[in-house]
């Protein structure tokens, strides 16, 4: 029967996939808290999480691993959502905050505050947001030719990324005496992050997640094409601008706490698209969850594989991401 809904296209299937990702999220969370130089049993994790018994396990779980896992999850959510949004508004499946320079824009402005004006450290997320927006605006200007041209988005994005990347390197060279941990920033790292960083990013994640889910239907209409969307009554320019700002907001907040963590925004929305299709009403929640899962697992891996040495999680992501990117190009 032509009219039968295939199971793969049904709502139940999409919800099943989302449920599986939630299970993975829980597994990743427990694993991340259990593994490391000090192994903590599952039962102990929950015991020490709930009450402060002064034990070394409590120390390790509460002060180090738990906030780090939460931060990994939140950064993953933000980057995955930023990627999902950008792919829609820029009409390009390869748009990812890392690849097209949104993250480097955020990074440059963030680093500039950190090393040149360290007394204003609290302004880093805001500066990062302006950097990300600036990058987005430049990409639009360069890529616009009677509409958003997908190829031009990538070309302009790569150029913008290189430009801001050079700015970051330049800043680091000029202020080499002040850049402790700048290397981990460049590669993206979760090491030594704790509750203050969680507090920084959490409001962004909550606001961003709520907004993208509420307005997901508008993005569904936007990807039909500008003229079609306008004909349907969508204010195309306003929707594109606000979603871009939202993506910049999400990416910038992630960059300000974990540095330039690439590829999450590329791999996650694509995997979700392959699994459950293009409907943003499902894609957003599913991407958010898978983003959290991916960064949590990658960080646990980065932390434990060469223990006691820690690899920046960004390197793990790049090792995963680069082949995936090539696979997408070849497809």
């Amino acid at each position: 029967m032509e009219n039968e809904i295939l199971f793969k296209d049904s709502k139940e299937y999409k919800l099943l996939i989302i449920a599986i990702i939630i299970v993975l999220l829980i597994v990743g969370f427990v694993l991340g808290n259990a593994k490391g130089s000090m192994e903590v049993s599952i039962q102990r994790i929950f015991e020490v999480m709930l009450n402060d018994d002064g034990s070394p396990e409590r120390m390790v779980v509460w002060n180090i691993r738990l906030p780090r896992m939460i931060l990994a999850a939140l950064a993953g959510v933000n980057l995955a959502l930023a990627g999902a949004v950008l792919q829609g508004v820029m009409n390009n499946p390869l748009a990812d905050p890392g690849i097209i320079g949104i993250s480097s824009g955020a990074g440059l402005f963030g680093i500039f505050i950190l090393v040149v004006l360290p007394q204003y450290q609290a302004l880093v997320p805001i500066a990062a947001f302006f950097g990300a927006m600036l990058a987005a605006v430049i990409i639009y200007i360069l890529a616009w030719k009677g509409g958003i041209q997908p190829i031009r988005v990538i070309l302009a994005g790569v150029a913008v990324s290189a430009l801001f990347g050079a700015g970051i390197s330049g800043t680091l060279v000029f202020y080499s005496d002040r850049v402790h941990g700048a290397l981990t920033f460049m590669n993206g790292s979760l090491s030594a992050r704790s509750w203050p960083e969680v507090q920084t990013i959490l409001p962004y994640t909550v606001i961003g997640l709520v907004l993208v889910i509420i307005f997901s239907q508008k993005l569904n209409i936007l990807i039909l094409g500008d003229d079609v969307a306008r004909g349907l009554g969508l204010n195309v320019e306003a929707v594109r601008l606000s979603f871009t700002a939202l993506a910049a907001f999400l990416a910038a907040s992630a960059v300000s706490v974990v540095g330039l963590l690439g590829f999450v925004g590329l791999i996650v929305p694509h995997s979700i698209r392959l699994l459950i299709g293009n409907d943003y009403r499902y894609m957003f929640p599913a991407s958010a969850l898978l983003g959290a899962v991916l960064v949590m697992f990658s960080d646990t891996f980065a932390r434990t594989i060469l223990s006691p040495t820690e690899i920046p999680v960004g390197i793990v992501m790049a090792v995963l991401g680069a082949p995936f990117f090539l696979y997408l190009l070849r497809r």
Partner: peptide, 26 residues
Amino acid sequence: MAILCQNNHTMSDVTVKNLVQYGRFA
């Protein structure tokens, strides 16, 4: 006023029914 555009290339994989429902957006 509704418009049927000339080039309807889209990266969307929406179903026919959902697409028609978008017609009610306005």
